[in-house]
């Protein structure tokens, strides 16, 4: 029906979301602060023994990244829902799953990419070492898009609910388990000087699966939530 190719609709929405985020820059910083703060709390809670921190560091950073991703995800549809733009997206002649993919990717660029930038710093704080730090960056680059893609399904299901945030974490966190396991153990393994190719291929497989299935699931969920 529409004459423009799919990539056109994708780009239009992607650019719009980036522009909106740029005009409200302050919101980008919040999940980032949360990420740093949570990670910084752990040494205070469990003691500053470098050996201990090195052992639990990958897990801590990844759990913190997971929570930061979850926290920032909540906002992905909120303003669109409140001002009615979400309805308009639903009624667009373009496939909703492509539009959803655009929204998720813009959202990841806004909230996920900054996590990557500060993560090496946190790695230094927890004394991870160069190899582990590089792997941390790599796993975050592969893993956080999966978190965004899976989480968006949950947000689509809870959009418009009054206590959506609480329920969202209950829906989404169990689904985050595989990413957490593969990614944090990749960082530990790299820290021990072993090969991490198995971990990385598993993460890539998860990313491919999430990329192919999640936008359609999000679209279906959104149609139901807004009906």
């Amino acid at each position: 029906m529409s004459t423009a190719p799919l990539s056109h609709a994708y780009l239009i929405l992607f650019k719009r979301d980036l522009l909106l985020a740029f005009r409200k820059r302050a919101e980008i910083i919040n999940p980032l602060l949360f990420f740093v703060l949570v990670t910084a709390l752990f040494p205070l809670g469990i003691g500053a023994d470098p050996a201990l921190l090195r052992a639990v560091g990958p897990g801590i950073i990844w759990v913190a990244a997971l929570l930061a991703a979850l926290l920032s995800l909540e906002t992905i549809f909120r303003s669109d829902f409140e001002d009615g733009s979400l309805e308009q997206l639903l009624l667009s002649p373009h496939p909703l799953s492509v539009l959803m993919l655009a929204k998720v990717s813009a959202h990841w660029v806004i909230t996920g990419l900054p996590l990557l930038l500060v993560a090496p710093l946190l790695g230094l704080l927890l004394d991870l070492g160069a190899d582990a730090n590089a792997t941390l960056l790599l796993t975050l680059a592969l893993g956080t898009p999966v978190l965004s893609l899976i989480g968006t399904i949950g947000v689509a299901l809870t959009v418009g609910l009054r206590r959506g945030g609480m329920i969202l974490s209950l829906l989404v966190l169990p689904l985050y388990v595989p990413v957490l396991i593969f990614a944090s153990s990749a960082v530990s393994t790299a820290g021990a000087g072993l090969s991490i190719s198995a971990h990385l291929s598993l993460l890539i497989a998860l990313l491919a699966l999430a990329l192919s299935l999640s936008p359609a699931a999000t679209a279906a969920a959104l149609r139901i939530s807004l009906s």
């Binding site: 809870t158 329920i167 829906l171 689904l175 279906a220 139901i224």
Partner: peptide, 30 residues
């Protein structure tokens, strides 16, 4: 936890029909 998520979602959505359909999506994702 997956079951509890399904039940929580079902309780949170007021319209019964919508609740059932949203729950179904979640169950399939699960």
């Amino acid at each position: 936890f997956l079951y509890l998520g399904v039940m929580a979602l079902h309780n949170a959505v007021e319209d019964k029909r919508t609740a059932a359909r949203a729950t179904s999506i979640l169950a399939i994702v699960g």
